[in-house]
Computed example of a mutant assay.
Amino acid sequence: MLIERFRAFQPQDFVFKLAQSEEDQAGFHALRRRIFCDEQGVFQDDDRDAIDESMIPIVCKPIIAGMEDEVVGVVRIDEREPGVWYGSRLGVALDFRRIRRFSSAASVRNQQPCNAGLGAIGAGLIYKAVSTANAIGCHEFLATVQKQNARFFERLHWQPLEEIELFGLPHVKMRADLNYYQPAASVA
């Protein structure tokens, strides 16, 4: 008897959107907890903070058989002073961090570039976050990024500003190039 190994199914079609439904918001918070509490141990039981009261949650969900599946990527954005927006709590589910290809429908569906390659879901979330803020009055978009991820952001048109420590970990404060992240065609 011959037993062949099969590759695990990895979807290639995704939607990047604001988390508006209860299901999307529950998935948003559950994934953050898995990444920042359980996996990384940055926070003990929950990673929620005062920013969650005024933030806009963004999620990435795979499209399987024409239907949205569970939340596999998250990021939140918030305006901390007029026109100055921040992105934070960017995370991608462990099984989706190595997605290498998107279907051609992903760019059309999301009205944004969906680049293939390592970190593709993270890059899509970043694009959705910055372009959404840019569409609603952003003139500066900042983030504090864990230091090991700073180079990834630089490849996505971000400029490092300073190194800082947050939650006992080295971070880099960074600024997005708003000329690269054109305002979103729709904020949804």
Rank of each mutant, 00 (worst) to 15 (best):
94 L>N: 13
89 R>Y: 01
13 D>V: 03
178 L>I: 10
132 T>M: 01
65 A>E: 14
38 D>F: 00
38 D>V: 02
79 E>R: 07
148 Q>Y: 05
89 R>K: 10
100 R>L: 07
157 H>N: 14
23 E>F: 08
152 F>E: 08
118 L>N: 14
97 R>Q: 09
28 F>I: 09
64 I>T: 13
124 G>E: 02
98 R>K: 15
143 A>F: 00
175 R>I: 10
168 G>L: 00
61 K>M: 13
183 P>G: 14
91 G>Q: 02
12 Q>Y: 06
82 P>E: 12
151 R>M: 05
70 E>M: 07
43 F>D: 07
101 R>N: 12
174 M>Q: 06
112 Q>T: 09
61 K>H: 11
151 R>D: 13
62 P>A: 07
87 G>K: 04
142 L>A: 03
94 L>M: 07
175 R>D: 08
68 E>C: 06
68 E>N: 08
184 A>K: 05
92 V>S: 01
183 P>D: 15
85 W>S: 10
154 E>C: 11
28 F>V: 09
181 Y>C: 07
172 V>H: 00
111 Q>L: 10
59 V>L: 04
2 L>V: 14
105 A>I: 06
175 R>W: 04
95 D>W: 01
63 I>V: 15
142 L>D: 11
149 N>Q: 02
164 I>C: 04
187 V>C: 09
135 A>L: 04
122 G>V: 01
92 V>W: 01
74 V>F: 00
75 V>K: 02
177 D>E: 08
107 S>G: 13
64 I>N: 10
134 N>E: 03
186 S>I: 12
164 I>D: 02
80 R>G: 11
18 L>V: 13
57 P>Y: 07
9 F>A: 12
152 F>I: 09
112 Q>I: 07
54 S>I: 15
22 E>S: 14
101 R>C: 11
89 R>C: 03
65 A>I: 04
183 P>F: 04
73 G>T: 14
100 R>G: 12
149 N>C: 00
176 A>D: 08
158 W>F: 06
119 G>Q: 03
88 S>M: 01
81 E>Y: 13
13 D>F: 00
26 A>M: 09
54 S>V: 15
8 A>V: 15
21 S>K: 10
51 I>Y: 02
35 I>E: 05
140 E>P: 05
164 I>W: 00
35 I>C: 02
9 F>V: 15
